[in-house]
């Protein structure tokens, strides 16, 4: 900036509603952080995935629907719940949480200070999946958007067609006397897949998946009956079963009891043949809890925001594209983003 050029316009001189610090996204007016990755006093959490809900904060605020899983994962925490759409005053900021359509309980966080509105998307998916609270566009001036799949090669097919692929795969495996081992993240993806399965045999779950199932069932989410895999379980008594487990468990000793088996993995990354092959699984099902290229655009358009801050994923490319299309887009510098998801597409929590 040229010195002396600082215009005496009040709006430019005041602090922005949200800033990017070395601990995460910070709201000076309300003195709170959103999804911070280092311990802070007051943290607002978009959802329970490990790269967003981290341990060590003094006070947590999250949706009522997100809290049970967070408590399960983080242990003893001091946390308050908030309903979707409910407004709360924190210092000079008004905050509210709105469905992000990502996993059960997930939210975008709206922050308003002196009439200026910013929204932090967290992770989101614009198409309804029948399980979690559907995404709701929120009007704002500035939108901080994830763009994990911010490339035009990422386009998801209709959920029903993926569901029938998975069901057909299961049926074919059953007919061939094989187990179906399906890898999926234990919070969110696993339950979404469960809700898509047609009943055709026993569904078995790894402990990490079953623990989440139990919590979500208690909250009133509808899931099919599942059987927790314990050492007592005799695989011979459940021929042709479908087994859902976190990807890390599929390659481990744990999975060896289910033989012969066909292995599958469900993730948006399976859209790319190279990544599919690196997993060395028989099948890759392209299904993601994040927005695809078109979904990102629809979401950004519907906010009406002029300023877009992009984080998580192909940020440089996505920001350049948005700028060419007339938005004022910036990359949230990487060191500010907890990048679990894009750093390890195959293993991370989506």
């Amino acid at each position: 900036m040229v010195s002396g050029a600082a215009a005496p316009i009040v709006g430019l001189m005041t602090e922005p509603v949200l800033t990017f610090t070395d601990r995460g996204i910070y709201c000076p007016a309300g003195d709170f952080f959103i999804d911070p990755w280092r311990p802070v006093d007051r943290a607002l959490i978009t959802h329970g995935h490990a790269d967003h809900a981290r341990p060590g904060h003094t006070h947590y605020l999250a949706t009522d629907a997100a809290l049970p899983v967070m408590r399960h994962r983080l242990g003893e925490i001091t946390a308050q719940g908030i309903a979707y759409g409910e407004t709360r005053q924190i210092g000079g900021a008004q905050v509210s949480f709105h469905p992000a359509g990502h996993i059960p309980g997930s939210a975008q966080i709206r922050v308003e200070v002196a009439g200026e509105v910013w929204v932090v998307s967290g992770d989101y998916k614009t198409t309804p999946d029948g399980l979690c609270e559907p995404f709701e566009p929120v009007r704002c001036h500035s939108f901080i958007s994830e763009c994990t799949f911010g490339l035009p090669v990422f386009k998801w097919h209709d959920q029903r067609s993926v569901a029938s692929e998975i069901n057909a795969w299961w049926a074919a495996n059953r007919a061939a006397g094989r187990f179906s081992l399906l890898g999926a993240y234990s919070l969110g993806k696993a339950q979404r897949l469960l809700s898509l399965l047609e009943p055709q045999g026993p569904i078995l779950t790894h402990g990490a998946v079953e623990a989440t199932n139990a919590i979500l069932r208690d909250q009133g989410y509808t899931l099919p009956d599942t059987t927790h895999v314990t050492p007592a379980l005799n695989p011979k008594e459940v021929p042709g079963a479908l087994v859902i487990a976190p990807p890390s468990a599929l390659g481990s000793q744990w999975a060896r009891r289910f033989r012969p088996a066909s292995t599958g993995f469900a993730s948006g990354w399976m859209r790319l043949r190279g990544i599919r092959r690196r997993r060395a699984m028989d099948r890759g099902f392209v299904i993601s809890d994040h927005a695809d290229w078109d979904g990102l655009h629809a979401a950004i358009r519907d906010t009406g925001a002029e300023n877009i801050y992009v984080t998580h994923g192909y940020t440089d490319i996505f920001a350049r594209w948005l700028n060419e299309r007339g938005w004022n887009a910036q990359v949230v510098p990487t060191e500010f983003g907890g990048e679990e998801e894009d750093s390890a597409p195959a293993e991370a929590a989506e």
Binding site: L151, V153, L272
Partner: peptide, 10 residues
Amino acid sequence: LLEDCYPIVG
């Protein structure tokens, strides 16, 4: 944009 996608897809 196509050129940027290509090395990622491979």
